[in-house]
């Protein structure tokens, strides 16, 4: 899951070297924290949050297979 978000984020931003993704594991839910360069924030969020929403949708499809919920947080 972490790799999935990292893969997508790196492909979307201007500055892939500054993409940092952490996974904070919980018992049933894990939180995926995404950090990107300031100028790239818009690229991973998208107009009206559409890109972020799409990533969350893909993430939840991926987590149904693992029977574990994953939440994406984009950190500034």
């Amino acid at each position: 899951m972490r790799e999935l978000i990292e893969y997508i984020a790196k492909a979307l931003v201007d500055d892939p070297d500054n993409v940092v993704v952490n996974e904070v594991m919980g018992e049933t839910t894990s939180v995926i924290e995404l950090r990107v360069a300031k100028d790239d924030l818009g690229k991973v969020i998208g107009k009206n949050g559409r890109t972020a929403r799409a990533m969350r949708t893909i993430l939840s499809a991926a987590s149904t297979k693992l029977r574990k919920r994953a939440v994406l947080e984009i950190l500034e």
Partner: peptide
């Protein structure tokens, strides 16, 4: 079709970027 839509959206975004 929400997941399909999301996958397509992300793919198009990446394609556009590349």
């Amino acid at each position: 079709g929400k997941t399909l839509e999301a996958i397509q959206f992300v793919l198009l975004r990446i394609a556009q970027k590349q």
